[in-house]
Design a protein around this nucleic acid. Structure first.
Length: 415
DNA sequence: TCTGGGGTCCTAGGACCC
DNA sequence: TCTGGGGTCCTAGGACCC
């Protein structure tokens, strides 16, 4: 039986392209999208890349004269998520199977497709026309090969590449999916410089020296699939909400508000996915970029007696953890709340000693979620998060574009 | 002055058990 | 001189991904 080919469809410079769709003034100009807190460059248009702005580069390290030539935007994840959904809709129309891999990438199957290149080209055309986002498609026998093809396709006029064996010798090993900076250095020291070198390396030695992950990557480069499409999103094991603060925070009160805000948000996400958590995890961090200051990064987890998705229970635990680990005399820069050991919300673990009050509790959470969904996040809140007050620790977002596609009051105006 | 957030998987080592 | 062996669970840390 012929093994069906896989494709990887990926939005070019995705966040930067999203910014351009609704704002023609920035087309053709170098665009940089920043991480939360306006910290690092997390997306760059082709023009910004040409100016030497690197992925992940702190924006304050980009020389002033370069920065002045660029349009700089704060991350607008609500907009990008919405655009991502539109692209996936197009793909589901065209392909028999689709795996949404990340906000800007989907794997597709060419099962039963006579001419993969032709269909890939049509997908590109339709996505560009219907959403305004330019895409590339890589095609290969395995996910790793499709990823490589996608990378090769960037910058070609056709935007579609079907990977052939011979192409791997011109493909740098650092661009192989699953090979990061550390592995690139170690492999390079052994003379493994291209994907072709990696594919031909002795597999036993590779397995012994680098472990099973790289051994699988090698198999995939040789056309032997180790992973199939996952059309249903696998159940998450944990869920984390964490943020750097806009400025350093010292008081327990501010910290406590931040932790409450993250805990509330985490529970909202949990309920939106119909899950419950068996544990709560909290961590704090001082500013690692100021090694002269005293550093402290405590982390502590707490196991719950039974799984919950009730914000009040999680808040109670998170605040308890905070009190246990907070120390005076440190300037905190970041905190995170994690919900651990997640299970489906219909799983009820009986407990001999607690009353069964779950239905009532979940009802009030449902009401809160539906009000917030209808009237906007934060319409109904909890006092412990310093609800609605402008917090001392809030994030910097100085160049945020409008929520063009999610809010009536921010729709584009056409005169 | 200014440095992201949310995940997964694997490995090694220690504690503990029989 | 001269230690048992093997299994599980937990945690911490590393590496990678987008």
């Amino acid at each position: 039986m012929q093994i069906p080919l896989l494709g990887l469809v990926d939005g070019n410079n995705f966040y930067a392209s999203c910014e351009r769709v609704f704002d023609p003034r920035v087309r053709g100009k170098p665009v940089i999208v920043l991480s939360n807190n306006d910290g690092c460059a997390i997306a760059r248009s082709q023009e910004a890349k040409a100016l030497g702005v690197r992925m992940g580069q702190p924006i304050h390290e980009v020389p002033n004269d370069i920065r002045k030539q660029c349009v700089i935007r704060s991350a607008n994840f609500a907009l990008y998520g919405d655009m991502s959904g539109r692209i996936v809709e197009v793909l589901r129309d065209l392909f028999p199977r689709v795996e949404v891999y990340s906000i800007d990438e989907s794997f597709v199957s060419f099962e039963g497709v006579r001419d993969p290149i032709d269909l890939a080209t049509e997908a590109r055309r339709r996505i560009l026309q219907w959403t305004g986002i330019p895409c590339c498609v890589g095609i290969g026998a395995t996910k790793t090969l499709a990823k490589a093809g996608n990378k090769m396709a960037k910058g070609t006029p056709q935007g579609v590449v079907h990977v052939e064996r011979a192409m791997l010798d011109a493909f740098s090993v650092e661009d192989v999916w699953g090979v990061g900076r550390k592995l690139t250095a170690r492999l390079g020291a052994e003379g493994i410089l291209t994907a072709g070198d990696l594919a031909r390396a002795d597999s036993e030695t590779l397995r012994a020296r680098y472990g099973v992950v790289l051994a699988r990557t090698q198999m995939e480069l040789n056309g032997q699939a180790c992973a199939d499409l996952e059309e249903v999103e696998p159940q998450r094991q944990e869920l984390v909400v964490s943020r750097s603060f806009g400025r350093e925070v010292t008081s327990l009160e501010d910290l406590s508000q931040a932790v409450a805000t993250f805990a509330i948000r985490a529970c909202e996400k949990l309920r939106a996915r119909s899950l419950k958590a068996n544990g709560v995890w909290l961590w704090l961090n001082t500013n690692p970029f100021k090694p002269g200051q005293p550093q402290y990064h405590p982390s502590r987890a707490f196991n719950l007696i039974r799984p919950t998705s009730d914000t009040r229970e999680v808040l109670f635990v998170a605040q308890g953890l905070l009190k246990a680990m907070h120390k005076q005399g440190y300037a905190y820069k970041k905190a995170g709340v994690g919900l651990l050991d997640l299970v489906d919300s219909d799983v009820v673990q009986g407990d001999l000693f607690s009353p069964q009050d779950a239905p009532r509790a979940s009802k009030s959470m449902e009401v809160m979620d539906s009000i917030n969904q209808r009237f906007g996040r934060g319409t109904l809140g909890m006092a412990s998060s310093g609800w609605k007050a402008k917090p001392a620790w809030g994030m910097r977002q100085e160049n945020l574009s409008p929520a063009y596609t999610q809010r009536w009051d921010q729709l584009m105006r056409v005169r």
